[in-house]
Design a protein around this nucleic acid. Sequence first.
DNA 1: ACCTTAAAGGTATAAAATACCTAAAACAAA
DNA 2: TTTGTTTTAGGTATTTTATACCTTTAAGGT
Lengths: 250, 250
Amino acid sequence: MVSEQIVERPLVSITNVIFSFDTVTKQLLVLLLQRSQAPFMGAWGLPTTTLRSNESADAAALRLVKEKLGVHLTSNQTEQLGTFTNVGRVPGQRTLALTYMVYLPVKPALIPGAGARAVRWFAVTPRTDRDDLVAGDLSFTGLTDDVSAADFYQRERGTTQLAADHALIVKTALQRVRNRLNYAPTILRVLGVSFTLKRARELYALLERRSVSQIDNSNFRKTHGHLFEQVGFVRGNGSGRPARVYRLKD
Amino acid sequence: MVSEQIVERPLVSITNVIFSFDTVTKQLLVLLLQRSQAPFMGAWGLPTTTLRSNESADAAALRLVKEKLGVHLTSNQTEQLGTFTNVGRVPGQRTLALTYMVYLPVKPALIPGAGARAVRWFAVTPRTDRDDLVAGDLSFTGLTDDVSAADFYQRERGTTQLAADHALIVKTALQRVRNRLNYAPTILRVLGVSFTLKRARELYALLERRSVSQIDNSNFRKTHGHLFEQVGFVRGNGSGRPARVYRLKD
DNA sequence: ACCTTAAAGGTATAAAATACCTAAAACAAA
DNA sequence: TTTGTTTTAGGTATTTTATACCTTTAAGGT
């Protein structure tokens, strides 16, 4: 456990892929901020902090959300994604990234804090062969689907790309989210603690790169119904019968 | 990325769950060693080393295998499992564990190295509600299936248990291995670069807690055949038609 | 020649997923 | 009260996939 040989200890950072949902435009969002410090000054990247001696990585991920967005979350709204340790991933000090996925049940107002020139929600925009992150005039190609992690670090990366290996981290996150859709769709937490099946189908459609109409209401209940449980009714949200409200089981 | 605030940096360790297979007894094995140093002196635990400044965590996991077993592996025989960061997981210095799963295609002879009083292969022994690790007179209860990670650190742990949170790590590894059986059964690498479908079914039976006869040969080909590709024939290994040899696709 | 074991194919049934449909419920607005 | 809208909640028919079970052949051993 504790090998007493002297090694220079790396800096341990926590990096979050924070997901939210825009109920108006029906877009899945990821939070990026524009760095105002070296390294990667001016570049857009994922929110990051440094692990403190008295907190677990999970706690640090929650603290990071609190600091950047003022939102207090509990641990079932985060999931460990992976640890990125490539030696050259950040210039200067050796830095490890312990990464987490965070599902925000609200879409809070954004105020650039310390270390950030700007902060924005980027819409996850699935293309046929990749995902893009789009916010108005700004756009990042998450990563082409078929590029392996090993290849990623070999590539030249331009100034119009995300800081460090954050494109790889986002790609990994989306992969994980898609894998889980059929047995543990925790991404649905971005819809709030409870949600209608309509909304759930919209999110599935987006991530599975198909249109909402391609996901049959009746069949969706049959195949995914066991993942949800009912909590009550919604207030009439317009015309038509109000949709029933569900939450994730377990 | 680099927050310049002064924090005490944790020790970053690499911990491996090394799997192998005994072709005679048809047992899935995990390597444990008995520690000869504090902390947890005398306790059995997973092989661990400290991350060096000039290597990635993946490289360190491979180095650890080389140091403990003298076997040189390449990166497609390891997979990141997760990072364990609970503040109290190790007494003394704050220590993070970056954990990997390693699939050994051979079962090398064991020599206790530095820091170890003994080293042994433990058979993964599935029970109805848990898995045990068994080596002759020694036995450890991996962990009861229904104990969550959060609960794990709350519990009192006796001296007859694995060091630190290694029981939790092993449990997590077995969970992962089982999840992947139907789409990416990398655990089959313990059978070597190539293997017969008979052997594959034996390993599936073990992990799915059923008998080999319950897994129909013909059906197994139909449902899992797409995961394998043929490489040739084996030499006659006894009586009967020699089994064809396959390897994992992709 | 005979035994053994895996390969390689088959069929019949069961279970799951999908396409498509109907009727009722619950509201808003005319 | 009637009409329109949208979801609920159920249905059936078809297709696909998984499972149980069986037969024949291949390729070795003795």
